[in-house]
Computed example of a mutant assay.
Amino acid sequence: MLNAKFARGLLFGAAALGTLAGSAVSASAQGVVNVYTNREPGLYSATLDEFTKATGIKVNAIFSEQGLAERIKAEGENSPADVLITVDIGKLQEALDLGITQPVRSEALVSAIPASARDPEGRWFGLSMRARAIYASKDRVKDNALTYEGLADPKWKGKICTRSFQHQYNLALTSAMIVKHGEAKTEEWLRGVKANLAKKPSGGDRDVAKDILAGVCDIGLGNTYYVGLMTEGTNPEQKKWAEAIHVILPTFQNGGTHINVSGIVMTKNAPNRENALKLMEFMATPKAQHVFADVNYEYPIRAGIEINPLVKSFGDLKADPMSLSDVAKNRAKASALVDKVGFDR
Rank of each mutant, 00 (worst) to 15 (best):
K200M: 14
L324T: 05
G99R: 02
K155T: 00
H167W: 08
N78R: 12
R331A: 11
D326C: 02
V311I: 14
F63Y: 13
L277C: 10
P321A: 11
I305C: 03
I248W: 10
D143N: 15
K329T: 03
A131C: 08
I100K: 11
L229E: 13
Q289H: 05
R132P: 00
I259K: 01
E298L: 15
A133W: 00
G204E: 14
W156R: 13
N254F: 07
K200R: 13
E306N: 01
A21M: 13
K278E: 11
A288P: 00
V295N: 01
I305D: 05
T251E: 13
G233E: 08
R8A: 09
A61D: 04
L277N: 02
G90Q: 07
A133M: 09
K268G: 10
E75S: 12
F165C: 11
G90P: 07
N235A: 06
F125Y: 14
R71H: 01
S79Q: 02
A152G: 10
I264T: 05
A145Y: 05
E306S: 06
V59P: 02
I134Q: 11
K340V: 03
C217I: 09
L317I: 12
F252L: 12
G256S: 08
A328W: 04
K142C: 11
N223Y: 08
K287Y: 02
T47L: 00
Q253A: 14
V311Q: 08
L43N: 07
K142G: 14
E149A: 14
M266Q: 03
E183Y: 02
N170F: 07
K194G: 08
E306K: 03
N254Y: 04
L10N: 00
V341F: 04
S23I: 13
K312S: 10
G42H: 03
R132T: 15
G220Y: 00
M1R: 05
G9F: 06
R206G: 08
A81E: 09
